[in-house]
Design a protein around this nucleic acid. Structure first.
Lengths: 289, 289
DNA sequence: TAATCATAATTGTCCTAGACAAAATAGTAT
DNA sequence: ATACTATTTTGTCTAGGACAATTATGATTA
């Protein structure tokens, strides 16, 4: 029995949205405490997780609420079926809970494959399996966090801070306040680094207004920002416009992630949603052969 | 000119709180756009930062709003004066912006002092200076993030994941959704590790309901949670009660941080707000000499 | 058939203004 | 000084309304 604020944090749905869904669709349908405040039972929390996942798959609330709870669950299962991962090793990793073993396995793999191949053949599939397992409820949130935490640590170790000074161009990678998903951005940072650029990866989320002064103080050639599916597209659009507006045009702006659309066209804003396109983007931006 | 949502993220004050301050104290005093939505000019954002800092120092909004903008600034300066750090090296670190040099300096220091001394003599003072510089506006938010980011990376490398299996007791360190401050908890994790315990430090914030299953799956002897000054005390209290209630009593619960009060008395809940007390708490919890 | 555009429906965030429990402060008695 | 009580103060909740931006739908044209 949790209140609306806690629920909002649990399922990553805004408080206002939760209330208006109740008004419009009759769900969630919380009980009330003595003061008339909403109290959500566990089952509704779980149902909202399902709904959120369907929404992230691209369905409108409209359609989602037209379905029964059972139909929703089936739909989620269905989505899972077609995307079965072929990589057994990755499957094992996602299923193994022991942190020590996860760490060892990842390190072994990294040594075998080298960083670039590790990213494409291990990290990306692993992240997919985790996302997918999460959507499908076959992996607990906790386990997902545990594995991605180990992966993140390992990847962060691969950032070469010592070589920043010698690099021709430095890039600043960061997320804005409210964006918690950093793994994709971290992969980008490493791939840019592989292209010979200096990657400064900021782990902490920054308020919008702090970005321009930091970028200028660090003397970077570009700032890369990532917006996950959880970040409202509207907000991402506004944020990028605001950023582009408050930075000198010499500093390029690179945006990526699910919430970023190709239509966000602006001068000196580069959309990069696929890791594969990083080398070509690199050439385009800093033609330093 | 930003909207209320963005402002909330910028200054870490809830949307509801911003509106009720306006109603009660006449500040902030935003303009309105064509739809009647609040638009906050930059100066008010800055003023709110000052107010937030005073609030974190322990002042009630009541008193804060009774002052003029100038008086507020003076008060903040005053608070700064008495806590001048004696450690010149730490001051330099906080002032130096180059990530490479920060990293090198920290590593050198760690090698000189050893982990335990590094924590007490370098990490803790550095965090104080950062906090303090932030409150005093002498360090930009961005710089503060940059330095604490480097410190965090270095400290995370010191966690010995490989020795988890051999340790007699394992501890799980984590923060709940919404709590972004992890440095203090990380220091604790390292000090517990120095006491011979296995520290599992989870970087990602977890929803409340995910903690008990994870703790049991990992077979830990205790869960340590941290709540910073930004986390509402009320919520921390509720969260701890809920956690304690949903975990087997064999798993101890350790809580620390500014938002945690000694009055939060519950069976098998241990409050630990000072790093110095970790060795004795360790003995108390796991009398394994 | 596919692409383009205008229209309609949907969605999430904002609005006002009132209520109240929990926390903090002040006041009083032990 | 300490404990206990009364009084502020504070932040989060409530309801129900509004509307711009996004997405879907249908009509029209190439």
């Amino acid at each position: 029995m949790i209140n609306i604020q806690q629920l909002s944090l649990e399922v990553s749905i805004g408080v206002d949205t939760l209330r208006i869904w109740e008004r419009r669709y009759g769900f969630p349908n919380p009980e009330r405490d003595s003061r008339g405040h909403r109290c959500y039972p566990d089952e509704q929390v779980e149902e909202l997780r399902v709904i959120k996942k369907l929404q992230l798959l691209g369905l409108q609330p409209n359609k989602i609420f037209a379905l029964s709870a059972l139909e929703r669950k089936d739909l989620l299962q269905q989505e899972q079926a077609d995307e079965g991962s072929d990589n057994v090793f990755v499957q094992q990793l996602a299923a193994e809970l022991n942190p020590t073993e996860i760490d060892h396995a990842l390190r072994r793999l990294l040594q075998q494959l080298g960083l670039e191949e590790f990213i494409h053949q291990a990290a990306v599939p692993l992240i997919h399996v985790l996302d997918h397992g999460w959507a499908n409820n076959s992996i607990s949130i906790a386990r997902e966090h545990l594995v991605s935490d180990r992966l993140e640590s390992l990847l962060k170790e691969q950032l070469k801070i010592g070589e920043l000074e010698t690099a021709l161009h430095r890039l600043l990678f960061l997320t804005l306040s409210g964006e918690r998903h950093k793994l994709g951005l971290l992969l980008s940072a490493l791939l840019f680094q592989q292209q010979g650029l200096g990657s400064i990866f900021l782990n902490e989320e920054l308020p919008l207004s702090e970005v321009p002064p930091l970028a200028e103080a660090l003397g970077v050639s570009a700032v890369a920002v990532s917006f996950s599916a959880h970040y409202p597209t509207r907000q991402a659009k506004k944020d990028l416009a605001s950023l582009r507006n408050s930075m000198t045009p010499e500093i390029k702006l690179i945006a990526g992630g699910y919430a970023v659309r190709k239509e966000f066209i602006m001068p000196n804003l580069f959309i990069c949603s696929e890791l594969e396109k990083i080398p070509s983007l690199c050439k385009k931006l800093f033609h330093d052969n």
